[in-house]
C-alpha cells in the first residue's frame, strides 16, 4: 500500500502538499473499500427479492411456507408453472396483454411522432394553442381519470372490448414531447432538399424524417411497451369479462382474490415472474439506451 503511495507521489511536491496528498489518497483508498462494501450490501437487497421469487416459484406450497428464505427448493417442481399454463386463465391473460401492448405501442409510436413532428416543424394556425393544451393535459394526474374514462367508454358503447382497452391509450402526451424535442434537434436541410423535389408532407415525414429519428423512436417504443404492459387501472375500468382480462388485472386478482393468504405462493410468484419476463428482456436488450440516454458526453 505504502509503495504505491510513494510511487504515485511526485518528487516536485512540496512538503505540505505531500501531506495533504497523502491524506487525500489515504481517505480515497479507505473510502473505496467502504464504497464497494456499501454498494454490495445494497445490491444484495435489490436483487435478493427476485432470486427468492424465482426459487420459490419452483417449490411446493408446503416448502414455500416452511422455508421462505431458502434459495434451493427441497424438491424442484414445475407444478406452479404447469398449473398456470395448463389449468388456469393465465394463457388468456397473456394473450390479451400481448395484443393490447403491441397495438398500443405501434399506435403510440406512430401518432406521437406525427404530432411531435407537426408541433416542431410545421407552421399552422393554432399550433401554440395545441401545444398549451398538451402541457395542460400532461399535468392531469392519471388516477383522477378512472371514473371519467369509465363514463366515456360506457357512453361510446365500447366497454368490454379491445377497442375500449386500446383506443384511450393510443396517445401518450409525454411521448409527443420526446418526439417534438428530438425533431427540433435535427437539422432542417434534409427536409428542405425534399421540399424542392416537391414531395408531400407525409412522404417527407415517412421516408426522410422518421428514419432519422431512430434513437427517439426506440426510446418511445420502450416507454410505450413498458407502460402498456404494466398498465392496470385503465383495464380495471374498461373491461369486466374474463376473456378480456390482461396479465396485470389477472395476476392482481390472483394476489388478493379467492386464494387464502399464506398459501399457494409458488403459483402467485410464478405468475408474477412470467409477467415480468417480456419487460425484463426488453430492459436487458436496450439497457445501454435506457440508462445512457443522458450520458452522451461521458465515456467509460
Amino acid at each position: 500500500m505504502s509503495e504505491t503511495h510513494t510511487s504515485l507521489t511526485p518528487v516536485t511536491l512540496r512538503q505540505t502538499d505531500e501531506g495533504r496528498f497523502r491524506r487525500a489518497l489515504h481517505s480515497l483508498i479507505h473510502g473505496r473499500v467502504l464504497l464497494y462494501l456499501a454498494l454490495a450490501v445494497i445490491a444484495l437487497i435489490y436483487i435478493l427479492p427476485f432470486v427468492i421469487q424465482i426459487a420459490t416459484s419452483f417449490k411446493s406450497d408446503a416448502d414455500a411456507a416452511a422455508n421462505p428464505v431458502s434459495l434451493i427448493p427441497e424438491v424442484w417442481t414445475t407444478a406452479a408453472y404447469r398449473r398456470l399454463f395448463l389449468n388456469s386463465d393465465f394463457p388468456v391473460w397473456f394473450k390479451n396483454s400481448v395484443i393490447v401492448t403491441l397495438v398500443v405501442t405501434a399506435g403510440r409510436v406512430f401518432f406521437d411522432s406525427m404530432a411531435g413532428y407537426a408541433l416542431s416543424r410545421l407552421r399552422f394556425p393554432g399550433r401554440n394553442l395545441i401545444f398549451t393544451l398538451l402541457v395542460a393535459v400532461m399535468s392531469v394526474p392519471m388516477v383522477v381519470l378512472l371514473i371519467p374514462k369509465f363514463l366515456i367508454i360506457k357512453t361510446l358503447g365500447i366497454y368490454d372490448s379491445y377497442l375500449g382497452m386500446i383506443l384511450p391509450l393510443l396517445i401518450d402526451a409525454s411521448g409527443v414531447f420526446i418526439m417534438k424535442n428530438f425533431f427540433e434537434s435535427i437539422p432542417r436541410s434534409v427536409e428542405e432538399q425534399a421540399m424542392i423535389d416537391r414531395a408531400g408532407t407525409f412522404r417527407i415525414f415517412w421516408s426522410i424524417v422518421l428514419p432519422m429519428a431512430r434513437p427517439a423512436l426506440v426510446t418511445i417504443t420502450i416507454l410505450s411497451f413498458q407502460g402498456s404492459w404494466n398498465e392496470l387501472s385503465h383495464f380495471i375500468v374498461s373491461t369486466q369479462s374474463p376473456a378480456l382480462t390482461t396479465l396485470t388485472k389477472g395476476v392482481a386478482s390472483l394476489a388478493s382474490g379467492q386464494l387464502s393468504a399464506g398459501s399457494q405462493y409458488p403459483i402467485k410468484l410464478a405468475a408474477a415472474a412470467v409477467m415480468t419476463i417480456p419487460v425484463a428482456v426488453l430492459f436487458f436488450a436496450f439497457q445501454k439506451r435506457i440508462m445512457n440516454t443522458s450520458e452522451g458526453s461521458v465515456k467509460e
Binding site: 396485470t248 409477467m275 415480468t276
Partner: peptide, 16 residues
Amino acid sequence: VTSSVAITVLWMFLFG
C-alpha cells in the same frame, strides 16, 4: 421497470 402488480405479489410473500 417491473410492473407494480408483480412487485406487490412478491412483497406480499416477502412480508407475509
